[in-house]
């Protein structure tokens, strides 16, 4: 099932953060949410999860995500944040088990054997099985992010939201994470990922949504969205798009910063 976002608007203290944002994230595909800092990427993800008051709708599998009961939503939609840390003494397995919370009954005292199998599968999917008993706070940033993804997978989501999950990862970590998301998308999970790195977006996303100043500036396949004209308008950079013969996707080469020409929401 596709995620159909229609006319989502968010105001914070009477100031518009998002204005009438509409787009479709196709099912079983990786959709990249791109745009400069302050474009509203994180706010949009928060609005989809009902974490900030918003108008408009986001329909997925017959439900309006922002309006549905939070527990039901958490069984269907999982979120991976930029870099979530903790002071608690938790093992990797404990962290992944958090993903079962929306599925557990209030009286359940320990994970059931079905829960345990799902946790094992999520650990295996992310290559973290060998780390299961390690303390979470002793892992590297890349490893921690894989654990977060495993936790999200343990929620058994049909829709996976990620908020710039690659920001603190080294290149190998970024590639591993994106490859994992492609596998999950191929298995039928709808993936919506906010990304800073446009080359990563061009390389691994099937579909892109470009936000600018709280509005949707463009939507479509990477080849259509990543054009020199749009990049200059929204990001304020001159850039060339060089075809990569091997991957069949464009490479972005930046030249210089220039004034933006994008429409901004008036205050």
């Amino acid at each position: 099932m596709s995620l159909v976002v229609s006319a989502i608007s968010v105001r914070k203290a009477a100031k518009p953060i998002l204005a009438d944002v509409s787009f479709t994230a196709p099912s079983g595909a990786v959709t990249g949410l791109i745009g400069p800092n302050g474009a509203g990427k994180s706010t949009l993800l928060a609005a989809l999860l009902g974490l900030v008051p918003a108008t408009g709708a986001a329909s997925f599998q017959g439900h309006d995500l922002p309006a549905m009961p939070r527990r039901d939503r958490a069984r269907m939609v999982a979120l991976v944040e930029q870099s979530a840390s903790t002071e608690e003494r938790l093992s990797v397995r404990d962290v992944v088990a958090l993903g079962r919370i929306p599925h557990e009954s209030a009286w359940q005292s320990a994970p059931s054997s079905a829960d345990a199998a799902i946790i094992d599968a999520a650990l295996a999917d992310t290559g973290m099985t060998a780390y299961a008993t390690r303390r979470f706070d002793t892992l590297s940033g890349g490893e921690q992010q894989r654990v977060h993804l495993a936790r999200a997978l343990a929620q058994q989501p049909r829709l996976l939201l990620l908020d710039e999950p690659t920001s603190h990862l080294d290149i190998a970590g970024q590639l591993q994470l994106m490859a994992l998301l492609r596998t999950k998308a191929a298995a039928g999970v709808t993936v919506l990922i906010a990304l800073h790195d446009l080359n990563l977006a061009a390389r691994f996303c099937d579909h892109l949504v470009l936000l600018s100043g709280g509005t949707r500036a463009a939507e479509g396949p990477p080849g259509e969205v990543l054009t020199p004209a749009l990049l200059q308008a929204v990001y304020g950079v001159t850039a060339r798009l060089v075809p990569d013969p091997q991957a069949g996707r464009p490479l972005i080469v930046y030249d210089e910063a220039v004034p933006r020409t994008s429409p901004q929401i008036p205050d």
């Binding site: 009902g50 939503r73 979530a84 840390s85 958090l98 919370i101 929306p102 557990e104 929620q155």
Partner: peptide, 23 residues
């Protein structure tokens, strides 16, 4: 004591807890 499991969800902050379905 009944809130034991929901309290675990706060390990990574309010947003993470809310995304796990906690009010």
């Amino acid at each position: 004591l009944l809130a034991g499991r929901p309290l675990d969800a706060f390990a990574f902050g309010d947003t993470a807890a809310a995304a796990l379905g906690i009010d």
